[in-house]
Simulated scan of single mutants.
Amino acid sequence: MIPTHSEAFASVDRRPAPRGAGRDPCAILLVDDHELVRLGFRALLAEQPREAGQPALAIHEADTLAQALALYQGNAADIAVVVLDLTLRDSHGLDTLIALRQACPDATVVVLSGTASPSTARDALALGAVAFFPKTGDLSHMLEFVRTCALRGAQAAQRMQCAPLHSCDSLTRLATSPDPMADAGSQLTARQLQTLQWVLEGKSNREIGEITCLSEGTVKNHVSMLLLSFAVRSRAQLIAKLRG
């Protein structure tokens, strides 16, 4: 049950964290267009005990992709992890993650999605998310992962031994594996993300080469890696998979 009293949020600092030299980032950017989801996240975070000397976790909130990009770019030094819903008022599906990763390539992104599809989880990890959690799962495990990301880094969070998150074994394995990219391929580079956006826009290898001043062969290699990462055989299948 979600607490209704303001006292329940006493341990959650919702103000932007002040910048300071020598201080590690420890804020969370929560991106979701449902107010109840954001309320529940804050409530769960407030219930978590804080160890002595552990900093309070500030929470920045956004309900659109545009607002999230502005908040991240204005507070990048403070934000340690982004919790991202894939379906927002101004963006939908994996396009949301692609746009965020393209604009903020250094962001540590945890996807919290209304879909529990293993293929969506796998594709989100291939696009550079460090973890994928369905909203239908046990959100306490998601919160533990996010807190560890914010306080100790993504690698420490990925080493956590979590209880099963979902009845679908493949999704559980993807979301809790110490190396979640093992089955999805390596995280896409900035160049591959850029190439992916152009492929989704329908540009040919030659057109992409002209834009980037790369040879068609180099562009073809990038596209081949994208097809491999998303387990598809053609550009048409890739577009259908990510835009379908």
Rank of each mutant, 00 (worst) to 15 (best):
M1H: 02
P3T: 10
T4C: 06
T4V: 13
T4D: 03
S6T: 14
S6A: 14
A10C: 02
S11L: 14
S11P: 03
P18T: 15
P25E: 13
P25H: 14
D32C: 07
E35C: 05
L36R: 02
V37F: 12
R38I: 01
L39M: 09
L39D: 10
A43F: 00
A43G: 09
A46E: 08
A52N: 11
G53Q: 10
Q54L: 00
A56K: 10
L57P: 01
I59S: 03
I59V: 15
H60S: 06
E61A: 12
D63A: 10
L69E: 12
Y72T: 03
Q73K: 10
A77F: 08
A77C: 10
D78K: 13
I79A: 10
L88G: 02
L88D: 06
S91N: 01
G93A: 03
D95I: 00
T96L: 06
A99T: 13
L100R: 03
R101G: 04
C104V: 14
P105H: 10
S113C: 07
S117M: 06
L125R: 11
A126T: 05
A131W: 02
A131H: 04
F133G: 06
P134H: 05
P134Y: 00
H141F: 05
L143V: 07
E144Y: 00
F145D: 09
F145G: 02
A150R: 05
L151Q: 08
L151G: 05
R152F: 09
R152H: 15
A156Q: 14
A157F: 01
M160K: 11
Q161N: 09
A163I: 04
L165S: 06
L165I: 15
L165T: 07
H166D: 13
L171K: 09
A175P: 01
T176F: 05
T176G: 03
P178F: 10
P180A: 14
A182T: 10
D183A: 13
A184Y: 08
S186K: 13
R191T: 12
L193F: 03
Q194S: 08
L196Q: 01
V199S: 00
E201L: 12
E201T: 02
G202E: 07
N205H: 11
E207Y: 03
S215M: 12
G217T: 15
G217N: 15
V219F: 14
H222S: 04
S224F: 12
M225T: 11
S229T: 11
R233W: 04
R235W: 01
A236R: 14
Q237D: 15
L238C: 08
L238G: 08
R243I: 00
